[in-house]
Simulated assay, not measured.
Amino acid sequence: MTTDLLRLVIFDCDGTLVDSQHAIAHCMDHAFAEHGLDCPGLEKTRTIIGLSLPEAIAQLARPAMLETTLIEAVTNSYKSAFFTLRQSPDFFEPLFPGVLEVINTLDQRGWLSGVATGKARRGLDAVLDRNNLSKRFVTLQTCDNHPSKPHPSMLEAAMMETGVDPRCCAMIGDTTFDIEMGRAAGMLSIGVAWGYHDREKLQSAGAHAVIDHFDQLPAILDDLWKPAAETA
């Protein structure tokens, strides 16, 4: 199979594949409180989901400017809190409706699938294992080895791993960080309206389309793929 026949769809995780906002907000509040900082709460935390932890914590602390050592300490407290939460027998990060069906459909249509997320690899592996998705993605890119979104490093690595041209790729995400990252990498960027940034923000960030339900994705990819394929 030649490179120009390969197509790759890359999913964000939190807010796109799984609904993890409450767990993230709980652990973020715990981490901030542990260091005597004001807890950001759910609504504020939703705005930074998708960024790498240090960048997210720095943004949540504004207008205060935290020392690098304090950002590192809060980051470690968050990781510890999430690890502990994950061990709870009733811990659950549910998949959004339609995820499995759409991945199956895209696979049948010849799309490769990958993930690019602000989660650490340990957290991503836990989510995929719990939902029997570990073997469904050909590339997994996390914040462990890359700059924070919207830097395109994760997408560039995914394309290098799979040998797919950016004109044959699509980034699917729920935040402006995902859309901006996809645009910076030269690929289609499709927003999802069920996540943590609203439709207007996704459109303003340059989304080629915004979908309301997962089952709309295959048709949207088909529509957008045609002009992309003509120039590939």
Score class of each variant (00 low, 15 high):
Gln141Cys: 13
Glu200Arg: 14
Leu42Ser: 06
Thr69Phe: 01
Arg7Asp: 00
Leu95Gln: 12
Lys44Trp: 00
Lys44Cys: 08
Ile211Thr: 04
Val115His: 00
Phe82Lys: 09
Ala116Val: 07
Gly173Trp: 01
Arg46Asp: 08
Ser189Pro: 01
Val164Cys: 15
Cys39Asn: 04
Thr2Arg: 13
Asn131Thr: 05
Tyr78Val: 00
Val164Phe: 09
Leu112Gln: 15
Leu224Phe: 06
Pro152Val: 11
Ala232Cys: 15
Ile172Trp: 03
Pro97Glu: 11
His35Val: 01
Glu43Asn: 11
Thr69Asp: 12
Leu202Ser: 04
His22Ala: 11
Ser153Phe: 10
Arg7Asn: 09
Glu101Gln: 14
Ser204Phe: 01
Thr175Cys: 03
Leu85Tyr: 14
Asp222Ile: 05
Thr75Lys: 14
His151Asn: 15
Asn76Ile: 02
Gln203Ala: 02
Phe82Asp: 08
Thr2Asn: 12
Arg46Tyr: 02
Ala25Cys: 06
Trp225Leu: 14
Pro94Val: 04
Trp194His: 05
Val210Tyr: 03
Asp107Ala: 15
Gly206Phe: 08
Asp222Gln: 15
Glu67Lys: 12
Ile49His: 01
Ala116Gly: 11
Phe83Pro: 00
Ala170Phe: 07
Arg121Ala: 13
His22Lys: 10
Gly50Phe: 02
Val9Asn: 12
Arg62Gly: 13
Ala219Cys: 06
Arg109Tyr: 05
Thr142Trp: 01
Leu188Ser: 12
Ala58Glu: 13
Pro94Met: 03
Ser189Gly: 10
Leu106Ile: 07
Met65Ser: 14
Arg122Cys: 03
Arg7Phe: 04
Gly186Pro: 07
Asp12Val: 11
Asp19Trp: 04
Arg86Phe: 06
Ala228Thr: 08
Met28Trp: 08
Phe82Met: 13
Ala126Ile: 02
Leu202Tyr: 03
Val210Arg: 09
Leu155Thr: 10
Leu124Pro: 04
Met159Ile: 12
Ala31Asn: 09
Gly15Tyr: 06
Asp12Asn: 09
Tyr196Glu: 02
His208Ala: 14
Leu112Pro: 01
Leu188Phe: 05
Cys13Met: 14
Phe177Pro: 00
Arg136Pro: 00
Leu221Trp: 07
Ala193Glu: 14
Thr75Gly: 05
Ala58Ser: 15
His151Lys: 13
Cys13Ile: 04
Ser77Gly: 13
Leu106Tyr: 07
Leu124Tyr: 04
Phe91Gln: 09
Glu72Tyr: 07
Met159Gln: 14
Arg130Leu: 02
Gln108Asn: 14
Leu217Lys: 02
Asn76Trp: 11
Gly191Met: 03
Met154Ser: 09
Val115Ala: 00
Leu8Met: 10
Thr75Leu: 07
Pro218Arg: 01
Pro152Trp: 12
Leu53Thr: 11
Ala229His: 11
Met154Tyr: 01
Leu70His: 08
Leu42His: 09
Ala31Lys: 04
Ala120Arg: 13
Leu202Pro: 04
Pro54Glu: 06
Leu95Phe: 03
Gln203Gly: 09
Ala184Gly: 12
Ile49Met: 01
Ile71Trp: 14
Glu180Asp: 07
Asp19Gly: 03
Arg167Ile: 08
Val138Phe: 00
Pro94Lys: 05
Asn104Leu: 10
Thr176Glu: 12
Met160His: 12
Glu200Ala: 15
Gly206Tyr: 10
His35Ala: 00
Tyr196Lys: 05
Ile172Tyr: 02
Leu217Val: 03
